[in-house]
Simulated assay, not measured.
Amino acid sequence: MSDEFIHIDHERRRGRAASTNRAGRFERFDRVDVSDGWAPDSPATIRTEVRLEAPRSAITRNSSPDVPFDRSINPYRGCEHGCIYCFARPSHAWLGMSAGLDFETRLVARPGIGKVLARELARRSYRPATIAIGTNTDPYQPIEGRHRVMREVLEVLAEHRHPVGIVTKGTLIERDLDILSEMAGQGLVHVGVSVTTLDPALSRRMEPRVPAPARRIATIRALAEAGVPVRVMASPMVPGLTDSELERILSEAAEAGAQAASWIMLRLPREVAGLFEDWLKEHYPDRAGRVLGHLRDMHGGALYEAEWGKRMRGTGPYAEMLDMRFRVALKRLGLSRDLPALRTDLFRVPPRAGDQLSLF
């Protein structure tokens, strides 16, 4: 397989971040578009395709020592938000697709996952702990408006009084404030809203189908006013490109009602490194050397290292300086690192039709 990246015409990929669509790392052959003289001179714009999957399981388990949860749910595979830096892009290779444009345009929705989740929660062996949603792909990406898979999941979790932590960039979460505010009143939910930059032009290039930064700040305010505990996630911080905005992001989020904050350094696992470097040279060629140089300084000469405890922040003076700035801003703004722990003692399996009711 050739190591060259075949760039797709800008007009065809308008509104997308990735410029290539190299085959997934498990595929034996690559695919290259070659004109045979019969196709139109101007190929059609690449559109979003959604395939439906009948889920066999809902809860995914993990044992990563540097994340604060051991279970999660993915309502969708792939993400139309198209963030060029997304560390979930390599997961598309397991579906036989590319981490590039396929990840942004060939999506999988999982309707019916609510019934599967209800069965899993009803098992006698199940023990409740916070379920994380949005840690891989965004549950409130644009197609949620049509498919409503996240809404389906939330309804089951609310019925079972099960704790959930949600991470999103999507303002569509405001649609579900009726459920979220009720769960928040029971200590069952908190939300992390990711704000990578406050520059709308940079955001549109880097995360092309994500709501504008100011709109996400407004979502933080809407959640806070509804009583939902909110954490602003200044993530990922891109050294030499967005890191200068750290304090301003935290300040605007705190003013909007965020109670806590976190940050993560840019992560470039597997295919994401090449995709991001390609994007950087296309849109910010004058900063490419600086950004990539900082990343290599923080990862022992590589663009990324996956070692536990290092992959989220990197090491060295630059990473330490950014964390120090974060801690100073946290103290000044009255923000916490963590939101209050969620309750597990309210968990119940609601009775189903035909079940014998308790006498007590």
Rank of each mutant, 00 (worst) to 15 (best):
Arg12Pro: 01
Tyr85Pro: 04
Asn62Thr: 14
Arg296Met: 10
Val349Glu: 02
Ile133Tyr: 00
Ser64Gly: 05
Thr196Gly: 03
Trp94Gly: 05
Cys83Asp: 04
Asn136Ile: 12
Ile131Tyr: 00
Val291Ser: 08
Arg221Val: 01
Ser2Thr: 15
Lys169Asp: 11
Ala58Pro: 00
Asp278Leu: 07
Gln259Ala: 15
Ala214Met: 11
Ala122Trp: 07
Ala122Ser: 15
Ile249Ser: 03
Glu305Ser: 11
Gly145Asn: 14
Lys331Phe: 05
Ala234Arg: 01
Arg248Glu: 15
Val34Thr: 09
Arg327His: 14
Trp94Glu: 10
Val149Trp: 00
Leu346Thr: 13
Glu155Leu: 10
Ala99Thr: 05
Ser251Ala: 15
Thr315Gln: 14
Arg77Leu: 04
Met150Leu: 14
Pro163Gly: 12
Val191Trp: 01
Arg231Ala: 14
Asp338Met: 09
Glu245Ser: 04
Ala288Glu: 08
Gln186Trp: 11
Ser64Val: 09
Thr45Arg: 15
Met150Cys: 06
Thr219Phe: 02
Leu177Val: 12
Trp308Arg: 13
Asp243Ser: 03
Lys281Ile: 05
Trp308Ser: 13
Ala234Trp: 02
Leu177Pro: 09
Glu307Val: 10
Arg61Cys: 01
Asp199Ser: 14
Glu155Ile: 06
Arg148Ala: 08
Gly301Ser: 11
Leu52Ala: 06
Glu277Ala: 13
Pro90Asn: 12
Leu303Met: 13
Leu346His: 07
Arg352Met: 12
Pro55Met: 01
Val328Ala: 15
Ala23Asn: 04
Met265Asp: 04
Pro200Trp: 06
Ile166Gly: 00
Ile84Gly: 00
Arg89Asp: 03
Phe103His: 08
Ala258Glu: 02
Ala302Glu: 15
Ala302Phe: 07
Leu121Ser: 07
Asp178Leu: 04
Gly309His: 10
Asp3Lys: 12
Met265Tyr: 04
Phe276Arg: 02
